[in-house]
Amino acid sequence: MAKHTITMTINGESVSAEVDSRLLLVHFIRENLDLTGTHIGCDTSNCGACTILLDGKSIKSCTYLAVRADGAAITTIEGLAAEGTNHPLQQAFHDQHGLHCGFCTPGMILRSVDLLKNNPNPTEEEIRWGISGNLCRCTGYNNIVKSVQQAAKEMQNQSESV
């Protein structure tokens, strides 16, 4: 089977690799790059545990071929904030108890990054619809909504103060 050389930026670093046509992006990230913060929960693009940012947009990496990410800039949860710091969403999930087991959390946060980029001041309903492709079995979502609300406020404050 054909091998393809792909080059992409992952969390700001350039990565090159030779991959099979059928390698799924999520496996490339987890197994080739050892970035295990991106999770697999359903295989059918329903649960969103594998959500990453590809060129700034949230996508489900279990339903995306690694070879198609050639030339892309990818952000995984490991690269969302500088080592030892929190992105406002990470801080908000901590402050608002927006996570229990943590398995959906990376995908939930990365999806929320994209949500807030397109809608910096979402209503509760818009947040709920905006994260509807990411399942959480632990939190009942109330505190995830509150986390996104806190982060929205914080990010707006930050952008105003710039």
């Binding site: 991106t38 949860i77 087991c101 943590g102 398995f103 959390t105």
Partner: peptide
């Protein structure tokens, strides 16, 4: 929380 928020959980 910290390890889960940064993708460092060990599942």
């Amino acid at each position: 929380d910290a390890r889960f928020l940064h993708g460092k959980g060990n599942y």
